[in-house]
């Protein structure tokens, strides 16, 4: 039986496939990057259709926003044309076809899409759905699982982001990036200054974007959202400011001397919450120890702190990545 959701799903997945094939065939890297932005946006719509609203939120802000800008920054530093290959790589095609066929064979025995009896819906998931409301007092199950039940995972992932930012800074953050502003500004920046409509529009939008980031951060317990999304949206607001107005002015507002330590501070808040629960006599990241009489209140406090740490790290990492890529002069 085809429901409305399934129909939308079929159409969107087909669109996604077409976009991916276009990405494979086009040699102009600029167009490929734009297509990857479209691809992310379509994926975000699919995630909404599949009830994964938090993931959709993240994909829309990360994939279509930050990722595209980083790719464009790299294109500006390298080249925008892919060289035509001299020969068709039949070996690669063969490997891909064989692997694909094996994977296809693997899907035959899988339970159908949307089957409630499929093994992925295990007793663990049932427990999250039935008990998380009382245990943590947070209605958004994704948030409570992310920050409390699987808090170790999320701490590891925050650390990965932290490490990636450090590695990018080691690779690109040398003297060539941050030193004295370039005296003759590039033509594109100057032409942007003559654009009253764009600047006025951006001025109207930046404030609400930053405000929305805070809403997402602190409303993440009740609706879709949380530290990851909020961090990315905040960084997107700052990046919009830097793109439309002036890179140097944006960097003066969010100085590397401030943002770089804040990357570490977020991870410290996360791990520090875990250490604090140890001092309260609980397990590492066992927030119930914060309030022995009201374990749910303790959980709420713990989730709040942890999400705050994630938000601080993610927003500063994204800003740092942007400033590092787009501040580097072309060699």
């Amino acid at each position: 039986m085809i429901t409305m959701v399934t129909l939308i799903d079929l159409v969107l997945f087909t669109l996604l496939g077409i976009t991916a094939i276009a990405m494979l065939r086009i040699r102009d890297l600029f167009a490929v990057v734009m297509l990857s932005g479209i691809y992310s946006l379509v994926s975000a719509v699919i995630f909404t259709d599949l009830d994964a609203v938090d993931v959709a939120f993240t994909e829309a802000s990360v994939g279509a926003g930050i990722s595209t800008i980083l790719m464009l920054g790299t294109l500006a530093l390298t080249s925008t044309k892919e060289k035509t290959p001299r020969r068709q790589s039949w070996g690669a095609l063969l490997i891909v076809l064989v692997t694909g066929a094996a994977l296809m064979y693997g899907t035959v025995d899988m339970p159908a899409f949307g089957d409630a009896a499929s093994p992925i819906n295990s007793p663990v998931t049932d427990r999250y759905i039935t008990a998380s409301g009382e245990e943590t007092g947070v209605p958004n199950i994704v948030t409570s699982v992310l920050a409390s039940y699987r808090g170790y995972d999320t701490m590891g992932e925050t650390t990965v982001i932290f490490t990636a930012a450090i590695a990018v800074l080691i690779l690109l953050g040398s003297a060539r990036t941050t030193d004295a502003p370039v005296t003759p500004r590039p033509a594109t920046t100057r032409s942007l200054e003559l654009r009253p409509i764009l600047r006025a529009g951006a001025k109207l939008l930046i404030g609400p974007i930053l405000l929305f980031a805070f809403y997402v951060q602190f409303h993440g317990d009740f609706g879709p959202g949380g530290g990851f999304q909020a961090g990315v949206i905040f960084a997107a607001g700052v990046i919009l400011y830097a793109l439309i107005f002036d890179m140097d002015r944006a960097r003066a507002l969010f100085r590397p001397a401030v943002t770089r330590p804040l990357i570490a501070l977020g991870v410290l808040i996360y791990a520090g919450t875990g250490i604090a629960t140890l001092f309260f006599g609980g397990n590492f990241l066992g927030y119930s120890a914060f309030n022995p009489h009201h374990p749910a209140h303790g959980q709420e406090l713990g989730i709040f702190l942890v999400e705050l740490g994630v938000g601080i790290t993610v927003s500063n990492v994204m800003m740092t990545l942007f400033f590092t890529f787009c501040g580097r002069r072309r060699p």
């Binding site: 994964a52 993931v55 993240t58 992310l146 992932e157 990851f228």
Partner: peptide, 11 residues
Amino acid sequence: MLTAIVVGVAT
């Protein structure tokens, strides 16, 4: 997957 996306953009 939510965390995987953010980790993915960092990597």
